[in-house]
Design a protein around this nucleic acid. Structure first.
Lengths: 354, 354
DNA sequence: CGAAGTTATCGAATCGATTCGATCGAACCG
DNA sequence: CGGTTCGATCGAATCGATTCGATAACTTCG
């Protein structure tokens, strides 16, 4: 009964509508798309026939085959959505992309690179792809998309051929932060970094680890710091989150003899975690320990700190990526963009106590 | 030069590969899909030809037309991604959906219902759609998808025909919280609710507002509370966030003469905001004011409270929705699911002071 | 050695719409 | 009044793959 009701009602197609309206399929198509000369009477007849048949409009699958465009933009996210969306910067970028590409029609397709997700990278019917953040298998992904002839935009990734780069001044921004601490008189400075490799290994930052790293953003930020503090040690976090900042912060601060007077965290969330760690160890910020972050996340609701940080235009980065996608699809050759971060002096930095 | 390089390289299709390999397109298709008897020699010849032409595999657009399936699952999100993803529950659900539907192939397509997004609802090449949370235009959306013959799953929405419901025990869970406060001796209890209408109106909860409301979850939670406190007043927030909780909290608590002894916030984030409001007004939680939330968000990193709340299985809800999608696409008739929340006694509730 | 049964391959129809070029009729102009 | 032009409509090809039924070759068994 139920099955019959469902199965016995095959979706009508444009040809059926055209037949009922007494016109050819081509005319019916014209009537729907609005492009091309169709008399008002005919159009209304077609629309009436469509209504009578409960026709929902042209099948997007057929359209995308014929037009060679699906209207879908892919966004490649790291393994788990949960992890990716924990970082407010990623959400902001996604929002910016959605803002600009909304007019294209279909929407944003979330693609993950893990396991069975590889299939999604190979099979997704996307017109263009935005690569958010750096991924271990970035090169492999880019190769696949290139072979498929799909337009590519990468946010904060190493420059690559045929990939439109949307970059951030990670290195000089980090330099600015380091310089700020240096100016205050700090010289024992440690870093808490974003993940450097695919495995998101926690632990001490080593030169070997840097060499094989695939984390472009993290690397650039390290380089910026080391332009000022050439030997600054570091601790790698497994993600950009408060929890991870706490873990890394405890590791960095727990040993009093090697305790730095300032910590440069590669994200605001990590910085908040480091502050927590400091508090747990009885250190007063900024008296005993200066802390800087990166991103400019609004912490109003999250933590009662005014963090010294570099504010980056995350939504704007997403918008630029979205505009880049549109330009590429329009056959243009947009130029790469590099955004600059703005220094924000908060209350978490001060001259070293000693 | 560049244009020539790009334009002069039309993507090869399966027919071209077949021609080069000296077989028919049908055989080449068999060789790629692996379904059907193809001799090893032939398959290798086809694959070699594909490699030679730099063929990236069957075009997903053509496949989806032929097969009638795109492998894409749509997820309808409220207006702005930013707003939707501010709520950890939504992220958790999305993650659960992704978990279960990952095997389907293409990925999750984010659909928004605003302005031009309406086009995306009408045109998205999706096989099924998960409606997350309640939307003002839910009925209209459902009508469109139904007409298009797209399988529907709704998380926490009013029961509708041909829509698989994944529900939560919002009413009885809220009853439990209210009962908890009642048992402690509270009788002047106020609510801070999730948005009740499309406009996300802030302000005093009115009976008229309840009547025209489209916010299923918010309504159910109100009903649960009013089973215990029949006349409990409320303040509507514009979103589930700490900021909004602060605003609503200040509104509820600022007038000492009408100040409640307990506040039932409809989400943990709202509850944290209300606690902030209480602190700003010099009230001590839980001595001067008891506060309960809803959701069971991990606040470890966000706020130093152990909130009394109902813990809901958000990821599991998403998983159930994902399984529902798969079942529906498999032609099954899955039964609706209703999850239950678990009471968590924290340190934000106590008997009233007076 | 011929009938029955496999196995590999091919042809052609099909999915549903778009679009270019052709056609037909009517209005317009000299 | 005949030729031209413009507008509306139609036919047919096309997008790229999948899949069913047919065919051919080849094995197996009586």
């Amino acid at each position: 009964m139920d099955d019959e009701a469902t199965a016995a009602r095959p979706r009508p197609n444009l040809a059926a509508v055209a037949a009922l309206a007494g016109v050819s399929p081509s005319t019916a198509s014209l009537a729907f798309s609005g492009s091309g000369p169709v008399s008002i009477a005919t159009r209304e007849r077609v629309l009436a026939a469509a209504a009578q048949l409960d026709y929902a409009g042209p099948d997007p699958r057929a359209q995308s085959l014929r037009r060679g465009r699906s209207g879908i933009i892919g966004v490649v996210i790291e393994d788990r959505l949960r992890d990716a969306f924990r970082d407010p910067m990623n959400i902001a970028m996604l929002d910016g992309i959605a803002d600009e590409t909304g007019s294209l029609g279909a929407g944003l397709l979330l693609l993950t690179e893990n396991g069975e997700g590889a299939a999604s990278i190979r099979n997704a019917p996307v017109d263009a792809v935005v690569l958010i953040g750096c991924s271990p298998s970035l090169a492999a992904q880019v190769a696949i998309f290139r072979q498929r002839g799909i337009a590519l935009v990468a946010i904060e990734a190493e420059p690559m051929d045929e990939v439109l780069a949307i970059d951030l001044d990670n290195r000089s921004a980090s330099h600015t932060l380091a310089r700020h601490l240096s100016d205050l008189g700090h010289w024992r400075v440690a870093m808490v970094t974003l993940p450097l490799d695919a495995a998101r290994t926690r632990g001490v930052l080593t030169e070997a680890g840097i060499t094989v790293s695939t984390g472009y953003t993290a690397l650039e930020r390290i380089r910026g710091v080391r332009e000022v503090f050439a030997d600054a040690p570091g601790m790698m976090a497994a993600a950009s989150s408060i929890d991870e900042g706490l873990i890394a912060g405890l590791a960095v601060l727990s040993e009093p003899s090697t305790r730095p007077t300032a910590v440069i965290a590669q994200s605001d969330l990590l910085a908040v975690g480091v502050i927590r760690a400091a508090e747990q160890l009885g250190l007063v910020v900024p008296h005993d320990l200066s802390i800087v972050g990166f991103d400019g996340v609004k912490l109003d609701g999250i933590a009662p700190y005014d963090l010294t940080t570099m504010v980056q235009p995350a939504v704007e980065k997403g918008r630029a990526a979205g505009r880049g996608v549109i330009a590429l699809l329009g056959g243009e050759h947009p130029r790469p963009v590099c955004f600059t971060s703005r220094f924000h002096l908060g209350t978490t930095t001060a001259p070293p106590a000693g």
